[in-house]
Computed example of a mutant assay.
Amino acid sequence: MIELKQQFPQLSESCLVDLKEAVNYIQTKTNELLVREGEYANKAFFILEGSARAYYLKEGKDITDWFALENDFISAIVSFFSAEPSPHFIETLEPSKLLVISKDAIEELAIKHADFEVLYRQIITNTMLQQQRRLNAILFQRAENRYHQMLDNYPGITQRVPLTHIASYLGITLETLSRIRGKLLKS
Rank of each mutant, 00 (worst) to 15 (best):
S178H: 09
Y154W: 09
Q149W: 07
I157D: 05
F45K: 09
V17G: 01
T164A: 15
V35F: 14
E59F: 13
Q10V: 07
D115S: 12
R133E: 10
V23G: 01
E94S: 11
S168F: 07
N153M: 08
L151C: 08
E49A: 05
L33K: 13
V118Q: 14
E39K: 15
L57V: 15
N145M: 06
N24P: 02
K97W: 05
A143M: 05
C15V: 03
H165Q: 13
L129A: 12
L135Q: 14
Y169K: 01
E37I: 02
R181V: 00
D18L: 08
L109Y: 07
T125C: 03
A83F: 14
E94V: 03
P95C: 11
L177F: 09
F73G: 03
E91I: 10
Q130G: 13
N153S: 07
L151S: 03
Q159W: 13
Q159K: 15
Y25T: 01
A22Y: 08
E70Q: 14
A68M: 13
A143E: 01
A83S: 13
G50Y: 10
F80R: 04
L93M: 10
N126E: 15
V17A: 06
Y25M: 00
R179E: 00
E32V: 11
G182C: 02
L16K: 06
H148E: 05
I77T: 13
Q27P: 04
A114C: 08
K20S: 08
T92E: 12
I123L: 14
I2S: 11
F46T: 00
L98T: 07
L109P: 03
R142Q: 06
F80C: 03
D72C: 11
I90V: 12
L69W: 09
I172P: 04
G182K: 09
T176D: 00
G156D: 03
N31W: 15
N126S: 12
Y55D: 00
H88G: 01
K20E: 04
Y154A: 00
K43A: 01
K186V: 01
E39D: 14
Y154Q: 01
H113W: 12
T64Q: 08
Q149G: 01
E37N: 13
L139S: 07
T164F: 12
T176I: 01
I101M: 08
E84S: 11
M128R: 06
L98C: 12
A41T: 02
F45A: 03
L170Y: 05
L19D: 01
P95I: 11
L33Q: 12
N126Q: 14
Q131N: 15
Y55I: 01
A44Q: 10
K43W: 02
Q132H: 11
V100T: 15
I157H: 06
N42V: 00
H148T: 02
S178W: 05
E70G: 09
Q149F: 06
S12T: 02
T176M: 04
L139C: 13
R181A: 00
H148V: 02
C15S: 05
E144T: 07
K183L: 10
E59K: 14
L185H: 06
A44W: 09
Q7S: 10
G50L: 08
N145I: 04
K58W: 11
T125H: 14
E117W: 07
K112C: 08
L129G: 04
F140E: 02
